[in-house]
C-alpha cells in the first residue's frame, strides 16, 4: 500500500504517494528527477548520496522515503539560492579544481554545507573528519579540503558584510 507523504525539498513542497520500500534516494532521483544526488555504495560507506534532512546530513540510500514525511530536505540543487549563481562552496570547488569525475562532488558539498553550518571556521583536520564518510575514487582529497577551507573564508566574508550593512 502506498503512503501519502508531504515533504519540502529545496523550498518546494511535494505531496507524493510512495511505496514504503522506496528509499529517499530513489524518490529524489526518480520521482523528483533531482539527479544531482548520486547513489554510490548503497550501504552508507561512500557519502555520494548525502542530503540534509531537517538540518542534519544523512545517507539518502539508508533512509526510507516514508520516514521523512513532514520533513524538510536540501539537496545539491538547493545549495545555490537560484539556478544561475553558485553557492560559495560550489564556487570554491570550481576554483580549486576539487572536481575530477564529479561523482562524489554533490555528497562532498552537502557534507561541507553540514560542517560549515555547525563549524564556520574548521581546521584542516576538522574538515578531514567532516569528510570521513565520503570517498573520492579520483583521490583528489587535497583539493577538496582546500575548497572547503576557501569556502569557509568566503562565507565568513559574506557574513561580516551582512552584519556591517
Amino acid at each position: 500500500m502506498k503512503h501519502n507523504i508531504r515533504i519540502v525539498v529545496n523550498g518546494d513542497e511535494y505531496c507524493l504517494a510512495v511505496d514504503p520500500w522506496k528509499t529517499l534516494n530513489e524518490v529524489i532521483r526518480e520521482d523528483l528527477n533531482l539527479t544531482g544526488t548520486k547513489l554510490g555504495c548503497g550501504t552508507g560507506d561512500c557519502g555520494a548520496c548525502a542530503v540534509i534532512v531537517d538540518g542534519k546530513a544523512v545517507s539518502s540510500c539508508l533512509t526510507l522515503a516514508v520516514s521523512v514525511d513532514g520533513k524538510s530536505i536540501k539537496t545539491v540543487e538547493g545549495l545555490a539560492p537560484s539556478g544561475e549563481e553558485l553557492h560559495p562552496i560550489q564556487e570554491s570547488f570550481v576554483e580549486t579544481g576539487a572536481i575530477q569525475c564529479g561523482f562524489c562532488t554533490s555528497g562532498m558539498e552537502m557534507a561541507a554545507f553540514h560542517l560549515l553550518s555547525n563549524n564556520p571556521s574548521p581546521t584542516d583536520l576538522e574538515i578531514r573528519k567532516g569528510l570521513s564518510g565520503h570517498l573520492c575514487r579520483c583521490t583528489g582529497y587535497n583539493q577538496i579540503v582546500e575548497a572547503i577551507s576557501l569556502a569557509a573564508n568566503k562565507m565568513q566574508g559574506c557574513h561580516c558584510k551582512k552584519e556591517e550593512s
Binding site: G47, V58, A111
Partner: peptide, 9 residues
C-alpha cells in the same frame, strides 16, 4: 562508529 551521516541516523 561509521561516519557523520550514519551517526545522524
Amino acid at each position: 562508529m561509521a561516519n557523520i551521516e550514519v551517526r545522524n541516523m
